[in-house]
Every structure is written in C-alpha cells, then in structure tokens.
Amino acid sequence: MNTRFYAYNFGIPLACAALVFLMFDMTKIDIAFSNLLFDPLTQTFPLDKIHFFEKLTHKWARIIPNWTAEIALIGAMLSVVWPLVNPQKRPRLGAFLERSKVAPLLRFAADHRRDFFFVVVAFAVCTGVIHFLKAHTSVYCPIETTLYGGKMAHVEWYNNFQLFHEAGEGRCWPGGHASGGFTMLALYFVARRYQWRFSSAILWGSLLLGFVYGTTRVLQGWHYMSHTFWAGIFVWLACLLTALAFYGRARLELPVLQKHQRPEPASTLATPLSNE
C-alpha cells in the first residue's frame, strides 16, 4: 500500500474537513461574513435582487457542468456502437461509416469507453452524495432564517443530522451550486489516468470553478461560506473513490508526463469496460 498516495488524497481533504468544522461550524465566522453582505434597512441581500447577477452566476453558470455531463453521457452511449458495428464482420457498414466520417468518432468513443462511463458515474455519485447530505441535515439557507428576515431557525448541520431518514425540509448544506462546479474534478482523474501534464491545471481550474459558483450564492444570501468548502470536500472524496473503482490506485499515482514524453495508447492502459 502506497501510504503517500492515500495520505495526500484522503489526508488533505480530511484535514480540511476538520479545519472547516473548527473554524466555521464551531464559531460565528459564517454569520459574521454574511452580516457584511446583508442590508438591515431593507432586510435583504442586495445582490439577490439583481436579475442579471442571478442569471449570470446561477442560471448560465450551470452550462459548464451540464454540458460536460451530457457530452460524457453521449460518449458513453456511442462507445458501445463501434464494437456492435464490428467492421470485420460487416465491412459494408464499416465502409459507409468511414465515408460519412462517423467512424473516427465511434472509434474514439470506444477507445475511451471507461473514461466516459467514469465521468457519468462520478457526476451521478457526487450529485447523490450532496442530495443525501442536504436531505439528512435539513439546514435552511441564511436568507430563509430569522437572522436575515426569514421564518426558519438557524441550525447547524451536525445538530440536525439523521443517518437513516430525512431530517426536514431544509436543503442548504452542503452547497449544491458549488458542488456543480466541483464535479469537474472528475476530469482531473481522467487526466491523471493518462499522466497528462496539464492535469494540475484541470485540478485548480475545477476547484476555482466550484469556489466561484459557491461564493456567488454566498453573496446572494443563499449559502454560508463554509457550505462551499464542505461541498468541495465531499465532491473530491466522491470523485476519488469512484476513480479508484474505475482505474485503480496504480494508474492514478503514476507521475505526470513531461513535454518530451508521450502517454501510452488507450488500448494498452486497460481492457475495454465491457470485457472486464
């Protein structure tokens, strides 16, 4: 067992979880920060009333993870077509697909079948984890609580947590919008599988996207800052466990290739998903 791999990939997020719990959940920092964004005279979060800000940061921003998930799903479905075509047995069909320029796309999808299915499953697992935590903690958003003109009481997630049944109507912890950005971390694990030298850029870009998504909702009064950190921690762990199931530790811990090096062809990295 490579303790360094597990210490880095599990140890750091778990340490971050402990830090977030102590710094935010056990103090009033979240409330103090949201107080700075709240206008007590109008009893509103001013940015929550700006239609364009809401559209830009909440509606349009969903395009990135939504399109990524849709592309992965389409790729996963296409990945099973080329083996079914089997040009050796159906040469006329194979020739038709070559002439129509569809064959290269189908071959690419088939070669990366495991990756497309991984992204689909990772997105689904992340979404499921976040929805489970929301339902089983029943935390209301700041704007819904009596602290900021709402009707619901402010309650910390650990005071409401129920493992085996839903805790109530609240659905604010962890940050759902932030988790949408963080799910792009699934692409980082695909890049690590191929030892791509830009994998670090994907990692930091995905983290930045999640923090931007989460922070915009904090500014509008629909989340506390700690909700974003918790979303990132849970999504990372969900993506990591899914990646280990699909690729294995040995592949994920290989060093990133340098510019003069080339990754191995996809066919040599692992057998197709359907044959395993």
Results as ranks from 00 to 15, higher is better:
R249A: 12
V256H: 03
A72K: 01
W196T: 08
V218D: 11
S274D: 08
E98T: 14
R92D: 12
Q162C: 13
F123V: 01
Q195G: 03
S200F: 14
A245E: 07
R4A: 13
S200W: 14
T268C: 06
P40T: 06
C16T: 01
R92K: 08
A69P: 06
P40L: 00
F5V: 04
L22P: 03
F118Q: 03
I12D: 05
Q195D: 04
A61L: 12
Y194L: 12
T42N: 13
L105R: 01
E70L: 15
A243F: 12
P272E: 02
V20K: 05
G214N: 05
E169K: 15
S267P: 11
V119S: 02
Y224H: 09
Y188S: 07
L97H: 09
A7T: 08
S267V: 15
I71P: 04
A238H: 06
S226D: 03
S179M: 12
H131W: 13
G168L: 11
V121Y: 00
L36I: 08
T242D: 00
A17H: 02
S274Y: 11
F33E: 15
F132K: 08
I71Q: 01
N159E: 15
L273P: 03
D30E: 01
F108T: 06
A17D: 03
R113F: 08
T271H: 14
A122I: 04
W67F: 15
L240G: 04
K28E: 10
L56M: 15
L254Q: 14
A109N: 01
W230F: 06
L208G: 06
S199A: 15
K55R: 14
N2C: 02
H131C: 06
W82D: 07
P65R: 13
V125Y: 02
L254M: 10
C239P: 11
T57P: 00
V218G: 08
P46Q: 09
A191R: 01
P13F: 03
W82K: 04
L36P: 10
P83L: 04
F5Q: 05
W82C: 07
I130Y: 10
H223C: 01
Y213D: 03
L273E: 10
A32N: 13
